[in-house]
């Protein structure tokens, strides 16, 4: 692979490359963690426990980042920042995988993690500038009756496998399947991700970013203060953060 990319070519902030995208309004996010819980339920994200969490092995596909300004005791909280896989159009995790387990979906324009291909080198997680990948360090036991709440549409991952946010691809497929069976296209707002559905403040909006009429692209445009994190790295993230509006 050639590496003679020019920074100017990489900066395509105005040009939208993705298909599915998200807008997160940090001004109305209360940091209640409902999205974190909903994501774990929807995607069979395991409970790591206190000991492994202490080693920094906690598993989340979405997390709430807190920041503050000033020195104690004059500490001022800034707005919360939900951080999840940005589904980069030019992802840094993809080219480093030796097993092609993390690949770019041409059909949905998402970063996929193919669990049965993953051999657990953890290179992708080390290369992710957003640090949103989680590794299964163990086969975490779920005591009965917890296995009954598994989502059958999502694989239960094994030990030694990397995982990350999929933009609820199972919901995308379900909506597409339903629309196809009714002979129509998927309507904007027909379905949403688990985190967006659970958000009590409606801080998360999900939809098609390649459709200029969709709510998510209107929001990303209208406020004029949308930020894509670490865009200068040329990752072409598909999550826009709104702040200070």
């Amino acid at each position: 692979m050639t590496t003679d990319y020019k920074i100017s070519e990489m900066k395509m902030s105005e040009e939208q490359t993705g298909k599915w995208g998200m807008v997160i309004d940090q001004d109305i996010c209360t940091g209640c963690q409902a999205c974190v819980a909903a994501c774990a339920m929807e995607n069979n994200v395991t409970f790591v426990g206190e000991v492994d969490s202490g080693y920094g092995r906690s598993m989340h596909w979405i997390r709430i980042e807190r920041f503050w300004e000033g020195e104690y005791p004059e500490v001022k909280m800034t707005s919360n920042q939900p951080m999840l896989c940005q589904q980069c159009g030019h992802a840094t995790c993809e080219p480093v995988c030796p097993a092609f387990a993390t690949v770019h979906s041409q059909a949905e324009q998402l970063n996929l993690q193919v669990y049965n291909r993953c051999v657990g080198t953890r290179y992708c997680a080390n290369n992710c500038p957003y640090q949103v990948r989680a590794f299964n360090w163990r086969d975490y036991q779920r005591p009965e009756p917890l296995p009954n709440q598994f989502n059958p549409d999502v694989t239960v991952r094994r030990k030694g496998v990397m995982e990350k946010c999929t933009f609820c691809i199972q919901r995308i497929h379900k909506a597409q399947d339903k629309a196809k069976s009714e002979g129509r296209e998927v309507v904007d707002g027909e379905f949403t991700t688990a985190c967006a559905q659970a958000c009590p403040a409606n801080a998360i909006t999900f939809g098609r970013v390649d459709d200029p009429k969709s709510l998510v692209s209107q929001m990303a445009r209208a406020h004029g203060h949308g930020v894509k994190h670490l865009e200068e790295l040329g990752t072409l993230p598909n999550v826009t953060y709104l702040k200070g509006g």
Binding site: Q106, V114, N116, T155, T166
Partner: peptide, 12 residues
């Protein structure tokens, strides 16, 4: 073909 040979069509 893109849709039917995409990893994410069956594996997620």
């Amino acid at each position: 073909l893109v849709k039917l040979s995409d990893c994410g069509t069956c594996h997620y």
